[in-house]
Computed example of a mutant assay.
Amino acid sequence: MEATPLGCQMVQRYWGIVGEAPDCTQVTQPSWAWSAVFISWVLRKAGLDERQFLTGQSHSMYVVDARDGILPRPAFHIEPVPALPRPGDIICAPRGRDKFLDDIAEIGFGTTPMHCDIVVSVDPAARLVKAIGGNVQQSVSMDEIELGDSGKLDGVTNSHLPWLLIMRNDLQ
Rank of each mutant, 00 (worst) to 15 (best):
D98E: 13
M61L: 12
F109Q: 05
D49Q: 00
S159M: 12
V136I: 15
L147S: 07
A46L: 14
V120N: 00
G108F: 02
D149S: 15
L6C: 10
S31W: 12
E2I: 13
I132F: 09
V140F: 06
H59V: 05
W32V: 10
I91K: 01
M61R: 13
L147H: 03
V42C: 03
G69Y: 06
R67C: 01
D102M: 10
F38R: 08
T111K: 13
R86T: 05
G19S: 10
V18K: 00
D143T: 14
I118W: 02
Q57L: 15
V120Y: 00
D89C: 05
Y14V: 01
V156S: 15
E106C: 07
C116M: 06
E106A: 15
V64K: 09
Q137T: 13
V156Y: 14
A21T: 11
H77V: 14
D68F: 04
A46S: 10
G47S: 00
I17K: 04
A131N: 05
W34L: 00
W15E: 05
T4M: 04
H59D: 08
W163F: 15
V122P: 07
W41D: 15
R127H: 11
E2C: 11
E2Q: 12
P30V: 13
H77F: 09
I145V: 15
P87Q: 03
L161N: 14
I132N: 00
L128Q: 09
T111Q: 15
T112K: 01
E79C: 11
Q26S: 08
A83V: 05
V119F: 08
K99F: 14
V122L: 11
T4G: 07
H59C: 07
L147Q: 09
S58Q: 14
L71S: 08
A131K: 09
F100Q: 12
V27A: 11
I90T: 03
N158M: 06
D89A: 02
D98Y: 05
V63E: 04
T55K: 05
D89R: 04
G151W: 11
I91A: 02
P162T: 12
C116G: 10
Q172E: 07
W15S: 01
S35H: 10
P5W: 08
V64L: 05
I39V: 15
V129Q: 02
C92F: 00
P30I: 13
S139L: 13
Q172K: 09
G133P: 08
V156N: 13
